[in-house]
Simulated scan of single mutants.
Amino acid sequence: MTPTRTTLPVHRLPDVPGRVALPAPAPTPAAPTAPRTPPPLEHFNTAPADEAVRTLLSCLNSGRWARRLAAHRPYPDPPSLLAAADEAAYDLTPGDLTEALSGESPPRLPAGTHGAAHTALGAAVAAYESRFGHTFTICLDGLGPTEAPDRILEGIRSRLANDPEEERLVTADELRRLARGRLVGVLAGATAPEQRTSGT
């Protein structure tokens, strides 16, 4: 005769002396997830038009340039936006250039630069503005702080020899390069400065 086996319910342990069933541990509550911050280009692509225009104006103070770039969103990647910014900058009219230059301030020398360099820069900037009637602009991307003073002074002195039309073309290209550099900073998550200084 086959002995009968007793089957215990799965959820219970047999009543063995000295053995106590432990309760299952309470589930750990899930940590709250932080709201997702979109990458800068995605934010730029989806921002309201007036916000996108304000961002662009912080890179170059030309309303037509900023509105044109904002109107062509979305951009698939940063190089596409930078290429569009360059193209729009090449189309700046003399009036657009005047507007853009009104948002620029003269280049500043790095902290700690010798006083004689500040005096020389002040005199050179005054001579430039007297000749051309607008702020001197220069892009210093890729230069270290110690190289900036010589490049600025050399740039002003060489450009003082330009006629007004030549200087307009040089100035337009420097503004394009400045705008591109500032836009690269925006795409990297930096905040563009409200007060734009040529060379930064």
Rank of each mutant, 00 (worst) to 15 (best):
T2L: 11
P3F: 11
P3G: 10
T7Q: 11
L8I: 14
L13R: 12
V16Q: 11
P17G: 09
P17S: 12
P17A: 14
R19D: 03
P23D: 15
P25R: 11
P25D: 12
T28Y: 03
T28G: 02
A31H: 09
T33G: 08
A34P: 13
R36C: 05
P38N: 02
P39E: 15
F44P: 08
D50V: 13
D50I: 07
E51R: 13
A52S: 12
V53I: 15
V53M: 02
V53E: 10
R54S: 14
R54I: 08
R54C: 08
T55R: 13
T55A: 14
L56V: 07
L57D: 07
S58R: 15
C59K: 01
W65I: 00
A66W: 03
R67P: 03
R67E: 15
R73H: 09
Y75S: 07
Y75P: 00
D77P: 04
P78L: 12
P78W: 09
S80I: 02
S80D: 10
L81D: 05
A83N: 09
A84I: 01
E87Q: 12
A89E: 04
P94W: 05
D96T: 06
L97S: 10
A100D: 02
S102T: 12
E104K: 01
P110T: 13
T113D: 02
H114P: 05
A116V: 14
A117N: 07
T119D: 10
A120N: 07
L121A: 06
V125Q: 09
A127D: 15
E129I: 00
E129L: 01
R131M: 00
R131N: 01
F132M: 02
I138F: 03
I138L: 13
G142V: 08
G144M: 02
E147R: 15
I152C: 06
L153H: 12
G155D: 08
G155R: 03
R157F: 04
R159W: 04
N162W: 01
E166W: 02
E167L: 05
E167Y: 00
V170C: 02
T171F: 00
L175Q: 13
R177N: 09
A179Q: 00
G181H: 06
G181Q: 09
L183I: 08
A188S: 14
A188F: 03
P193W: 00
S198T: 11
S198N: 10
S198K: 03
G199K: 01
T200W: 06
